[in-house]
């Protein structure tokens, strides 16, 4: 997604790494202007240190986004992207690249959050179904009554139905194991 956006903006993506093992080597081979990396990647330390440790490359500049622009830096950190300029590139151009990357990361993040939310809702629905099933068995009632029971407990306790369902499952399943 980031790659597509960068290409559309007229940048060229020279290398994409899935695994960090060859990070040093790949940077040396492809000589990129900028390396973009997920903020929470454990490999950030390796990349971050190249500029300090690497003596063969005497003029490596490491930018964290544009460090003189705290707003861009905060935005980058929050969206989960960091970028390194491996060799002296005009800061203005870096900023443009970073902004594209941030925008794409942001939309990716919100998609991911949507997906997580959908997954949670599905899991909650399953949990409620399971709690209803247990209640029907233990209280010999029908589905409608089981649901009303859950809703009443939830209202009395000021909890969400899904949370009540969880504690109902907890209690009734333990009873089943016990019996």
């Amino acid at each position: 997604m980031v790659e597509e956006a960068l290409t559309n903006e007229g940048h060229q993506v020279t290398c994409r790494l899935q695994s960090p093992a060859s990070l040093n080597e790949m940077v040396a081979r492809h000589q990129p202007d900028v390396v973009i990396i997920d903020m929470d990647s454990p490999d950030r330390d390796t990349l971050d240190s190249m500029a300090v440790l690497n003596r063969e490359n005497p003029r490596p500049v490491v930018f964290f986004a544009d460090q003189h622009d705290p707003d861009t830096m905060q935005a980058a950190l929050k969206s989960g992207v960091s970028a390194y300029v491996v060799d002296g590139l005009v800061p203005g151009r870096v900023k443009a690249i970073i902004e594209v990357a941030i925008a794409r990361f942001d939309s990716f993040q919100s998609m991911r959050q949507e997906l997580d939310k959908a997954r949670n809702q599905l899991a909650e629905r399953k949990r409620i179904e399971r709690a209803k099933g247990l209640l029907m068995k233990h209280q010999s009632c029908d589905e409608e009554q089981a649901y009303r029971m859950l809703r009443k407990i939830a209202m009395d306790r000021g909890q969400r139905i899904a949370d009540v369902a969880e504690s109902v499952i907890d209690i009734l399943e333990r009873l089943e194991i016990g019996s």
Binding site: S41, P42, D45, D48, M73, Q74
Partner: peptide
């Protein structure tokens, strides 16, 4: 929990 020292460092510096 932070996965890298550089990330921890930047988050402290940025106030996150």
């Amino acid at each position: 929990r932070e996965s890298a020292w550089s990330t921890l460092r930047d988050k402290v510096a940025a106030g996150l």
